[in-house]
């Protein structure tokens, strides 16, 4: 069977859903951050697929920027997790309830 763009979109959708489920279900802040990275990558896959459909490299340039921003975001988020761990000796998000969220 011939591979169509919808195949790539379905894979991107599944990966995004898995990442979102992880963000909702997991309690370890580091694992939640990893699931966020997975969601970003699912979006990247859809962008590259559409970039190929439109025969336009701008989509890939956008993915390049998304990867760069994801790297910066991961560094800052991990720094925040370390700072929180210093304060409260935990990375469990259920115990970070200072704002009663």
């Amino acid at each position: 069977m011939e591979i169509q763009i919808a195949h790539y979109l379905v894979v991107a959708g599944i990966l995004f859903a898995v990442g979102l489920t992880g963000v909702v279900v997991r309690r370890n802040a580091i694992v939640i951050l990893m699931c966020l990275e997975l969601m970003l990558n699912a979006a990247n896959l859809a962008l590259v697929a559409f970039s190929r459909v439109h025969r336009d490299m701008q989509g890939q340039v956008f993915v390049f920027f998304a990867i760069t921003v994801a790297a910066a975001e991961a560094a800052v988020m991990l720094a925040i997790i370390i700072a929180v761990y210093r304060q409260r000796q935990t990375v469990n998000v259920d115990e970070m309830d200072l704002m009663q969220g």
Binding site: E2, Q4, I5, A6, R52
Partner: peptide
């Protein structure tokens, strides 16, 4: 875009 075959493109 669904019907667009990647290999064809």
């Amino acid at each position: 875009y669904f019907g667009m075959s990647v290999a064809g493109i």
